[in-house]
């Protein structure tokens, strides 16, 4: 109940201008944020059809009301060791424009966390860490209270053809 109140507070905050709302989720004790407008729905883990010869982070495809939706394990995409999927494993279904084509994909994450409203100026704060391959997936870092949230550039994360 208290969570919902908090969420509502956050939502009402989000109506202020220049603020974007982000859905955050947990992965390996880190908190990541997605633009909430890209999120279509959140589902539980279900049985999945493997795609032959796909990269390890492509777990397969599911049937989402008649559409074939590929499922990406974000842990593996970021090179973090994977954990076993259980009943609590969450799939965030997002809709993103990748190279001018709209794609619907599912992201496997550890758990969904919160919704924050973050002003654009705050979110623009991108540190320069050239040495990491994962840097291109990050659109910004932001502090929310004591915590740090990594905002993701979904179009890059899900662009499977990028080298």
């Amino acid at each position: 109940m208290s969570e919902r109140i908090q969420l509502n507070q956050q939502l009402s905050l989000g109506k202020q201008q220049d603020e974007n709302q982000y859905l955050t989720f947990m992965m390996a004790d880190e908190e990541y944020g997605l633009d909430i407008l890209a999120v279509q729905e959140i589902r539980g883990w279900e049985e999945i059809t493997a795609i032959p010869n796909a990269a390890d982070f492509v777990k397969g495809a599911i049937n989402l009301r008649g559409t074939i939706v590929p499922i990406i394990d974000l842990r593996l995409r970021f090179g973090i060791s994977s954990i076993d999927y259980g009943p609590l494993t969450v799939v965030i279904v997002v809709s993103v424009y990748i190279r001018e084509q709209q794609k619907v994909m599912g992201l496997v994450v550890d758990a969904v966390s919160d919704v924050y409203s973050i002003s654009e100026e705050k979110a623009k704060d991108v540190p320069d860490f050239q040495d990491s391959n994962n840097a291109q997936y990050v659109s910004g870092l932001v502090n929310v209270g004591e915590k740090m949230v990594v905002l993701l550039n979904l179009a890059k994360v899900l662009d499977l053809n990028a080298k």
Binding site: E47, I48, T49, I51, P52, N53, A54, V58, G60, A61, I62, N63, G66, T67, I68, V69, P70, K103, V104, M105, L160, N161
Partner: peptide, 20 residues
């Protein structure tokens, strides 16, 4: 449509039980 071309696969379908 949501993924990319997969070599050796021409498409997908949904079976009677809802699986892909």
């Amino acid at each position: 449509a949501n993924y990319q071309k997969v070599d050796g696969i021409s498409g997908a379908t949904i079976l009677g039980d809802g699986r892909v």
